[in-house]
Every structure is written in structure tokens, then in C-alpha cells.
Simulated assay, not measured.
Amino acid sequence: MHKVLFVCLGNICRSPMAEAVFRQKVTERGLMDQFHIESRGTSHWEEGNPPHRGTRQKLKSQGISCEGMSSEQMTSGDFLEFDWIIGMDNQNKADLLASAPTGMTEKVHLLLEVLPESSRKEVPDPYYTGDFDLTFELVDRATSKWLDLILQ
């Protein structure tokens, strides 16, 4: 079982988008029985809230469901449960590394590290930029690469 966790600041824009897109790709390949996929936030600010309206609209326009998703904050137990913990930006990664139990830091990655050809190294937060299209484009490209990498 491959256990994958996507993480951003509030868990309402980028990480739920990545969770939903990745889940759709895994489902399309008929591999959901081999994966456990979730998302979290490094903060508790949005805990219990559904994905941002912009995230929901963008996913819906692509035929991807985020039904039933709500924001949760990262816990120390998540480091034990998940094999891959993938942050959206450098601050997410730094926060994850700072809170990781001893021996768990190797699980922490940046989403865009699998796109070395990209000029972008971080996924911009559409909560602030309003650009859900760019966020989706980056998430879509990177999650395809992550799926291939995890299956190797």
C-alpha cells in the first residue's frame, strides 16, 4: 500500500487539489486498492472547512470530485502513517521538517521537485494569487510524475 499525503498551509486550496487530482489519476489506472491518499494543512486555521470555492470550481470544470473533503491539520502521527509527505512550497516543507519525528524527514518532499525542467520550484497559493488555473496546471503535471515515481 502506497500512502501519500499532500500538504499546504490551510488545506483548502493546493493540497486538496493535489489530493483530488492524484486520486483521479490513481482511479483511472485502476490502482486505488494500492493507495491511501489524503491531504493536510500545516495550520489549523481552516480546520473542518471544505476546499476553497476556487479549488472546487476548478476541479469540477475538469470532472474531478472533491466531495466529502475537509481541512485537517498535520499531526505527528501522519509522519508514521504516510510514506510520502509532499508539500506545496518551501515554507510548507520547512514546517514539515521542523515538526517531523526523528528519522522521518526523508519522507518530506516538494511537489514540484519532480519537474526539474520547470522554472517554478513552488506551487503559488491561489488563496492569495487567485490563479487556480496555474495551480491546477502545476498540480496536474507534478502528480502525474509522482504517480510514475511511486509506482517504480
Rank of each mutant, 00 (worst) to 15 (best):
residue 43 S to A: 13
residue 43 S to L: 12
residue 45 W to K: 03
residue 46 E to T: 12
residue 47 E to Q: 10
residue 48 G to L: 12
residue 49 N to W: 00
residue 49 N to L: 05
residue 49 N to I: 04
residue 49 N to G: 01
residue 50 P to F: 01
residue 51 P to W: 00
residue 51 P to C: 10
residue 53 R to L: 13
residue 53 R to V: 15
residue 54 G to C: 06
residue 54 G to Q: 09
residue 55 T to H: 00
residue 56 R to G: 04
residue 56 R to M: 09
residue 57 Q to K: 14
residue 58 K to W: 02
residue 58 K to L: 12
residue 59 L to G: 10
residue 59 L to R: 10
residue 60 K to R: 14
residue 62 Q to G: 05
residue 63 G to L: 08
residue 63 G to Q: 08
residue 63 G to P: 08
residue 64 I to M: 00
residue 70 S to Y: 00
residue 70 S to A: 09
residue 71 S to F: 00
residue 71 S to L: 07
residue 71 S to W: 00
residue 72 E to W: 00
residue 77 G to K: 08
residue 77 G to F: 01
residue 77 G to P: 08
residue 78 D to V: 11
residue 79 F to K: 11
residue 80 L to G: 15
residue 82 F to M: 02
residue 83 D to S: 10
residue 84 W to C: 05
residue 85 I to H: 05
residue 85 I to T: 10
residue 86 I to P: 05
residue 87 G to C: 12
residue 89 D to P: 10
residue 91 Q to R: 09
residue 91 Q to N: 06
residue 91 Q to S: 07
residue 92 N to I: 12
residue 92 N to R: 03
residue 93 K to V: 15
residue 93 K to H: 02
residue 93 K to M: 15
residue 94 A to M: 08
residue 95 D to I: 13
residue 96 L to N: 04
residue 97 L to R: 03
residue 97 L to W: 00
residue 98 A to M: 07
residue 98 A to C: 04
residue 98 A to Q: 12
residue 99 S to N: 12
residue 100 A to E: 09
residue 102 T to D: 14
residue 102 T to L: 13
residue 105 T to L: 06
residue 106 E to W: 04
residue 107 K to S: 12
residue 107 K to H: 11
residue 108 V to C: 08
residue 108 V to K: 03
residue 110 L to T: 11
residue 110 L to I: 13
residue 110 L to K: 11
residue 113 E to R: 13
residue 116 P to A: 07
residue 117 E to L: 02
residue 117 E to W: 01
residue 119 S to F: 01
residue 120 R to M: 10
residue 121 K to I: 14
residue 123 V to T: 14
residue 124 P to Y: 04
residue 124 P to N: 11
residue 125 D to E: 10
residue 128 Y to P: 06
residue 128 Y to L: 08
residue 128 Y to R: 11
residue 128 Y to V: 14
residue 129 T to V: 10
residue 130 G to N: 05
residue 130 G to H: 04
residue 130 G to R: 03
residue 132 F to K: 12
residue 133 D to L: 07
residue 134 L to R: 04
residue 135 T to P: 01
residue 135 T to K: 01
residue 135 T to H: 00
